[in-house]
Amino acid sequence: MNTCEPLIFTDLKKRTHALSIAQGFHDKLTQQHSYRVKKLCIALAQRFNLSSAEIAALKVSAVFHDIGKLGIPDRILLKADKLDSQERQLLQLHPVIGQQIINSINLKGAADTAKIIRHHHEYFDGTGYPDKLKGDQIPIGARIISVVDSYDAMSYTRPYQQSRKHSDIMTILEQESENKHDPNIFQVFADMIKTSPLKVR
């Protein structure tokens, strides 16, 4: 990435404003979740030696990491009971749909953002989706979103789950470290979240 690319991502952010509005109308809770994820991702990224362009791409990716859920039926997204295998397969299409939506903007910087969105559900041990990438094969932006997304998702009540306490969430994340999450990113997050205004009780 060259030094002018953060300006490209600024333009991309402006062009995706309509998507943000659409996301909010479709699911206000998901929109609120996405903005919290963005704030935590930025704070976490600043603890790594990421370039300004990488952070700029992460900002857009964090806001739109779940934009692909616009293509998933509400009966699946809002189902209170456990998803069956077919429903789970449909839900797991949302990162691919998200990539396609962002790529359709056809703007410089969209491809890097879309790649992060596609891979934010890859697992560090290679058992995630959609491409079963492993370790450093997963873009660092996607690995950051993975940890932050999991934390925030467990912090708030949704139709399919009750909110959890901070200590319980951190226990789960620590257990998931090395298989689901990058253990180094988790450790930095664990330190960062202690003083974050977005830490839940």
Rank of each mutant, 00 (worst) to 15 (best):
S150K: 05
T10F: 05
N49F: 03
L7W: 02
D182Y: 11
H94T: 01
T127P: 04
L29W: 03
L173E: 06
P159A: 06
L90I: 12
S51R: 05
G141W: 11
K132L: 02
D191V: 10
S85C: 00
A80C: 09
L70H: 04
A153T: 09
L198V: 00
L91Y: 11
N103K: 11
A114T: 05
F64I: 04
A142S: 15
G135V: 04
P130T: 07
I21W: 03
S167T: 09
N2I: 04
L78N: 09
E176L: 04
A62D: 09
Q175D: 14
L83D: 05
A142C: 11
P183Y: 06
V148W: 07
S146P: 05
D136Y: 11
I97L: 12
S51V: 02
Q100L: 06
Q23P: 00
I138P: 04
Y35L: 10
D131S: 11
N2H: 09
V147R: 05
Y129F: 15
N106D: 14
I145M: 11
V63A: 10
L173Q: 15
S146F: 03
A57E: 13
L77V: 08
N49I: 00
D152C: 06
K134Y: 06
A153Y: 06
K38G: 00
D112H: 08
F189T: 00
